[in-house]
Design a protein around this nucleic acid. Structure first.
Lengths: 187, 187
DNA sequence: CCTTAAACTAAACGAACGTTTAGTTATTTT
DNA sequence: AAAATAACTAAACGTTCGTTTAGTTTAAGG
């Protein structure tokens, strides 16, 4: 062994993640990443291999943060009301300095031409499935209903969450809250 | 006067529009546009000034097409049921070869860093307002209710439409139809 | 203490981007 | 028919992108 790294990979990934979250994948250049992460291009490449490789680490870092929100929902047993709270929690979680930052997974799904990068696509699909399963199991606790209804309501709320996170980058807090309230009127 | 143009600007704009619609603004290169529009870069620049200038023409061309859908809704007087039909009509309108293409306005809102290009932002905002006003006036015909309720329901449906068009690029027809049905249960 | 190897800096890489320019062709008008 | 002018072709422009490479510094192991 020789020299030790001056930086923590975990720390620089989190910085990169926040930059990707705010600006998107394509609009975030290696130059911006160098500055934000505080390390040289060479160090980025030696630690993560490529911009894609770094981005995948960022997606994983994001999922860990998002999982703290999901754990809160997992811990409760009141069905739809808790999912609604999850929607509000998400808005708080994704708050930017002015408009919201959306969800890194959703933003990426909107940006990336699907199936362009196999590994990234896989993370996105898995993450989406996780959220749907979380909604389904939350609904199951409340409803004791036909699995078909559970499936449909979970899918509905999945798309609503997808829409909300996309919309959070453009619409006002009032509009977003109004959207949540109306979404849960009939659940 | 000297030579006449070999191409119709209207025709090449529509071809460009479809390319932007499918691939997004950034991912559509001048090289791709040359090929798809069947004219040289020079001709594109002499007709439209810049990539942004061409794109704005494409947004206008898109709005003309979208207005045909909106006219159908304008012509009816049955409130929410017709708006629901508009949602289904939109899915048909935005159908791609495999997954949907979404809405050019929504796709652009998701892609562009808001307020980066003033002119583009203006078109996006105006277009969004138009849709909201269309929903509001449709609801007004049915409801005879408090303007506040109209406003809230129109905003709710606006965000639902925004979410649907974003989701249409990623989710299945079944999921999208299920989303529409559940959305209108709340109206 | 000296060798060695990994982490560092900084510069350059080729490719692709949007845009411009120089030079040619074609058609209208005088 | 000649002159004029706009549409055309094709090549090159300067930037920026992600990535790589050459050369230097640092510190651990024998």
């Amino acid at each position: 062994m020789a020299r030790q790294k001056k930086y923590s990979e975990e720390e620089v990934v989190e910085k990169a993640m926040n930059l990707f979250w705010k600006n998107g994948f394509e609009s975030t250049s290696m130059q911006m990443l160098e500055k934000e992460m505080g390390i040289n291009k060479f160090s980025i490449y030696s630690s993560f291999g490529s911009k894609n490789g770094l981005f995948i680490e960022c997606l994983n870092s994001y999922k860990i943060e998002l999982n703290r929100l999901m754990d809160k929902l997992r811990a409760t047993e009141n069905g739809a009301a808790d999912i609604k709270q999850y929607f509000y929690d998400f808005l708080e979680f994704s708050k930017g300095s002015d408009l919201g930052k959306g969800c890194l997974v959703t933003n990426t799904s909107n940006e990336i031409d699907i199936y362009t990068d196999e590994k990234i696509t896989e993370v996105l699909i898995n993450s989406t499935n996780d959220v749907k399963q979380l909604f389904a199991s939350s609904l199951r606790k409340e409803l004791e209903k036909d699995e078909l209804i559970i499936e449909q309501q979970a899918d509905y709320l999945l798309l609503a969450m997808f829409g909300l996170s996309s919309a959070s980058r453009l619409f006002t807090k009032t509009q977003l809250h109004n959207y949540i309230e109306n979404t849960f009127k009939n659940i």
